[in-house]
Write a protein that binds this DNA or RNA. Structure first.
Length: 274
DNA sequence: AGAGATACCTGGGAGC
DNA sequence: TGCTCCCAGGTATCTC
């Protein structure tokens, strides 16, 4: 399930595989994922070059040479590949984009939560309007304890859903929110407004470190995620709390517990997290 | 405005 | 073996 590190890994690989290639043909096999895929066929993409691939949160944008872009999101089961044209089509591959170097950019998504659409780029280097509500990037310098404390001031909901809110900070999903709150010693069901600036400092540094380590490991593969080269993410081996219900806490050996917050499984150590 | 619930979608696993 | 039910989860949308 792609969170920020997975999107970053895919984006880097796609930048290498797509930049400076020209689109020669587009095929759509499925009418819709999150949105209709059919407009891709009428967008006049063939003949246009891809300049670069950039990431914002869990979204990727492939800039085209005419002020438009391809906006991508991988939902939780999106996989992209760049392969020779003779590889047989897989069951849940929905779009093929043929490239001038002879390869094919293929978009697969089992659960159809993914997004692939043409967007307008307001100016070079800017982001499409669809991404205007996104919060800060957790690896940039404006993701600070003071910012988090300020945003949380009037938020009485639980801290876990707050840190997963992508209008606050992008790219932290269920896996990395659990891991970061554990590292910071914060119980996931605490009201967000009760978390102190000192605790936010611990959270911010934990989240940054975990996200960077995960990127270096090629992301986390739980069930669906694959990198562009088909390899699985290795960060799954380093998870300390996610999915560990009933196992001993890696720090204090207390039994790890689980609860549901916002409909999502949340894992925590009842002794280390307060 | 914030927060909770729900829908979207498929495959895999549990339970009977 | 085959059926039903539940779960995974980012995001949009709805309601209160």
């Amino acid at each position: 399930m792609p969170e920020l590190p997975e999107a970053e890994c895919i984006g880097r690989a796609l930048d290498r595989a797509l930049s400076k290639r020209t689109i020669t043909k587009v095929e759509v096999f499925t009418p819709a994922m999150r949105t209709s895929l059919l407009p891709l066929l009428d967008a006049g993409l063939p003949g246009h070059a891809i300049l670069e691939v950039r990431r914002r949160g869990r979204y990727l944008v492939a800039d085209l040479d005419d002020g438009r872009g391809l906006l991508m999101h991988f939902g939780m089961s999106g996989v992209v590949r760049v392969e020779p044209p003779d590889v047989p089509k897989r069951k849940h591959e929905h779009v093929f984009i043929y490239l001038s170097d002879g390869k094919v950019f293929r978009f697969e998504c089992t659960r159809r939560f993914s997004l692939l659409e043409v967007c307008d780029i307001p100016a070079p280097g800017e982001w499409p309007e669809q991404l205007s509500k996104l919060g800060v990037e957790p690896l940039e310098k404006d993701f600070t304890a003071e910012y988090m404390a300020d945003m949380a001031k009037r938020r009485g909901g639980n801290v876990k859903n707050f840190v997963m809110d992508n209008t606050v900070v992008v790219g932290i999903g269920n896996i990395y929110s659990n891991e970061s709150l554990f590292e910071a010693g914060i119980r996931p069901d605490r009201p967000a407004c009760d978390v102190t600036t000192g605790e936010w400092k611990l959270f911010v540094s934990a989240a940054r470190r975990i996200l960077k380590e995960s990127i270096a490991s090629g992301g986390t593969t739980i069930s669906d995620f694959l990198n562009v080269d088909g390899t699985e993410g290795k960060y799954v081996l380093k998870l300390r709390i996610y999915g560990k219900t009933g196992e001993p806490c890696p720090v204090c050996k207390s039994t790890i517990e689980t609860m549901r917050l916002g409909g999502r499984s949340s894992f925590f150590c009842p002794r280390c997290q307060k």
